[in-house]
Design a binder for these strands. Structure first.
Lengths: 115, 115
DNA sequence: CGGTTATGTAACTGAGCAGTTATAGAGTGC
DNA sequence: GCACTCTATAACTGCTCAGTTACATAACCG
């Protein structure tokens, strides 16, 4: 099985796998920004940032508007909702995980008590 | 900034970026499985699946136990909780996103009215 | 128009990844 | 100990990706 939603998730998760791109999203959460503004905090050339923006745009995580000579990038969080929807199926496991951790800690404590 | 949590998220999101690995996680959600069992549904060699498991294990998404000659893989969802925690910071945007769409449509309509 | 600023594109490099086949290792059962 | 099963590792290939520098566009400003 190889669905369209799969392709979407591929792109979203792959986009999120890079720390520079996550930092760009964090910056955009504070408001729109030009390429130059986004490039400044990173020890990285402008073309590199342009490429990251292209990846983010491809994943639907960023939209852009032309204003005079500058292109402003905007955060588009909707694909994150899709990723969240995928992960939601596993939420019961990570709650269960804490239960297991609790159980393990309890077992450990009991063992401690015995010794 | 390049934190340890970043490295963790790198590994988790990168692991999730591959549809085969997401399918493996889906299978493991139904219960532990051997490498051979995991390989069967995919048109893929056993070493390929072993590599995917190694990636998943590296991201902390899978743990393994040796039982006789077979190694059973178990889903470990805790890293998904970390990824979820990261995404949580953006949840307000994906609700807001629908509002913004409404606003954009309204602006477009106004512009149409003017011309 | 000419210069300047902001950004995208092209061509290249090095690294890493997903897959393959072939082989090695480790445990079980007899 | 031997054959068998399950899994990991090695070596290789083709592709993608993150980054670079150099150059091309495009829109403003005087």
């Amino acid at each position: 099985m190889h669905t369209v939603e799969d392709d979407r998730l591929d792109a979203v998760f792959a986009a999120l796998a890079d720390p520079t791109r996550r930092a760009i999203l964090a910056r955009l959460a504070e408001g729109e920004a030009s390429v130059a503004e986004l490039a400044r905090p990173f020890a990285m050339s402008q073309p590199a940032v342009s490429k990251h923006l292209k990846v983010l745009e491809g994943a639907g995580l960023v939209s852009r508007t032309q204003v005079a000579t500058t292109r402003l990038s905007h955060l588009e969080a909707q694909p994150l909702a899709e990723a969240d929807a995928w992960m939601r199926r596993y939420k019961r496991f990570w709650n269960e995980g804490f239960d297991k951790l609790d159980a393990a800690l309890a077992a450990y404590r009991d063992q401690e008590d015995e010794t």
